[in-house]
Simulated assay, not measured.
Amino acid sequence: MVRKQTELPEAVTIAIASLRDGEKSKVGDAHDLLQDAVLGRQGCLRTDKPQPVDWAEAAWDEFITLMAHDNNHARSIAGQVLSNLAQSVPPETALRDLDKVSAATRDQMFVTARHVLQSMWKFGLGTKEVRRALVAEFADLFRISGTEKNPTLRRFDIVTGLRALFDETGDDSLLQTARDLISLEDDPTYRKKYSGVWRDLIDR
């Protein structure tokens, strides 16, 4: 795991400045720059596996601050990038701020909240300690989702995030967690939908 702190790449510095500006086209450009910076290619900040980077600590607090931006797209990108960088910062940093990223999954703009939730599984790519904390946070979010907007979409995203993390880590405890959470769903239609994410494993 990369832990050494280095200066920010120019593209990341430009992206942060563009996000701070908040102008629509600049925020879009920042999104493209950050795809290359954290994924090493164009791709999806929510679902694609990030590459380890040596500048994560230098950028971390900048993106924490950006999660309070007036522009909801900027907030969304900041939360997604933090999830991508979590494996590259010291575990104490990821653990310290996991709850801040989790809080963003309740953003007043549902699309922002959902995009952050869909990316949060990447916190689990770091140490086992951070993974355990993430899974506990996911479990809490799943249980309280009945009081949140669009609860079935939130639950589906959590189950999908657990599956993505399982596919990357092979951690069998994630399968059991998914089973336990899916069993909490009272509606058989949605229980079947969530189980479908694990169709090849859930019945073994």
Score class of each variant (00 low, 15 high):
D70N: 14
I77P: 00
V130N: 13
E23R: 15
Y194E: 00
T105E: 10
V135D: 11
D171Q: 09
F156Q: 05
W55I: 10
K49D: 15
D172N: 11
K26I: 05
V130S: 12
V89H: 12
L98W: 14
V27G: 07
G124Q: 08
A113Q: 03
E7A: 08
L82K: 01
E62L: 11
L165D: 05
S76A: 15
N71H: 11
T112N: 12
A59Q: 02
Q35S: 04
T169I: 03
H115C: 10
D29I: 11
R131Y: 07
A139S: 15
V12F: 02
L98R: 10
E168S: 11
P90Q: 13
S18L: 11
L8F: 13
R154N: 06
L153P: 01
F156D: 03
P52C: 13
M109Q: 08
L19E: 03
E7I: 03
D97T: 13
W55Y: 13
K4T: 15
G126D: 12
P9R: 00
A133C: 07
L33Q: 05
A74V: 02
W60K: 05
G161C: 06
D107Q: 04
A74R: 01
S25M: 08
P90V: 14
D186G: 15
H31V: 05
L19V: 07
G170S: 09
A133Q: 08
T127R: 11
A103N: 13
K49N: 14
L33P: 00
T189K: 10
G43M: 10
K192H: 01
D171S: 14
D107S: 04
P91T: 13
L174T: 05
G170Q: 04
H69A: 07
R179A: 09
A68E: 15
A59R: 05
A68H: 11
A113M: 04
D61N: 13
D203E: 13
R46W: 06
L141N: 09
L19P: 07
V38S: 01
L125T: 08
E129P: 13
S145F: 00
W198A: 05
L95S: 07
A139Y: 10
I16N: 01
T169Q: 00
G28I: 02
F123K: 07
E168W: 12
E92N: 12
P50T: 09
L19H: 04
S76H: 05
L201V: 10
G79C: 04
K122D: 15
A136I: 14
D157H: 10
V53C: 04
F123I: 09
M67Q: 11
T47G: 03
L117Q: 15
M120P: 00
L45K: 07
M67H: 04
I64S: 09
Q118L: 09
N84G: 03
A15G: 02
L45R: 08
A164Q: 07
R179I: 09
P91Y: 09
R155H: 01
V159R: 10
V159G: 04
D29Y: 13
H31R: 12
E57V: 02
V89T: 14
Q35A: 04
Q51A: 14
R114V: 06
Q35G: 03
V81Y: 05
E185N: 01
R132C: 08
K122W: 03
D203Q: 13
S18W: 08
I202C: 08
W121H: 15
E10R: 10
G146I: 01
F166S: 06
T105P: 08
D97Y: 15
L181D: 06
A133F: 02
D157E: 07
Q176W: 05
G28E: 12
L66V: 06
D140W: 15
V53D: 00
A68C: 11
G126R: 03
